[in-house]
Design a binder for these strands. Structure first.
Length: 198
DNA sequence: ATTTTCAAT
């Protein structure tokens, strides 16, 4: 009776992958980025489930070309060809905040795509490279709402991007001091974003 | 103990 192929299930992230990558207690040399898109309609944001998913950076293994998660995401976004007559809000939940180079690329994309608004929730601040702070400020100046993930966002991602269908208890299992660490990082970020030079 | 960072600043 069932006609046609079953709808393709959206891929979900492995539980441990999420906990390993987004935790404040565990710093991996890789980055995961979860994303979703809303379209403005009658002053409301309507979720577009077809543009919901996650990805990870490429290249550390197998000798592939290295590529930060944001660059992969930018390519994916470009491939959607979002209608320039409409307004979109793109939300990213990313395990590391963007490096300065990725921040530049994001700013460039947003300049060329005025119909797209971007929000970035980062689990941790990536301060490996000098200029990480000016990169974050450039994002803010370009209209990106950059904030740290709080319990609410971790839980949201757990519910929306992580595969825990088999579990009896599907609630998000927070790690020790999640709320405190998130609050500390939020204050650090606030200081970075306030601190305009010149 | 809150050393860790999309590895190789």
């Amino acid at each position: 009776m069932a006609a046609g192929p079953a709808p393709e299930a959206r891929p979900l992230m492995n539980k441990q992958t999420f906990l390993d990558n987004f935790s404040h207690l565990n710093y991996l040399n890789e980055t995961y980025l979860c994303y979703e898109v809303d379209r403005m309609q009658d002053d409301l944001w309507i979720p577009l489930d077809e543009y919901k998913g996650f990805l990870r950076n490429k290249g550390a293994d197998m000798g592939l070309e290295r590529r930060h998660a944001e660059l992969i995401f930018l390519e994916r976004m470009a491939s959607w060809n979002l209608d320039t007559e409409l307004r979109y809000r793109v939300t990213c939940f990313i395990s590391w905040s963007p490096c300065p180079d990725c921040a530049d690329e994001l700013v460039k994309f947003l300049r060329e795509n005025r119909h797209v608004n971007l929000r970035i929730f980062a689990a941790r601040i990536y301060e490996r490279f000098p200029g990480y702070d000016t990169g974050l400020r450039a994002l803010k100046a370009a209209g990106v709402k950059v904030t740290m993930m709080t319990f609410q966002e971790f839980e949201y991602c757990w519910k929306n991007f992580v595969d825990h269908q088999q579990d009896e208890d599907e609630s998000f299992p927070p790690w020790d001091n999640l709320v405190v660490r998130s609050e500390e990082l939020s204050q650090r970020l606030a200081g970075i974003l306030q601190n305009q030079e010149d």
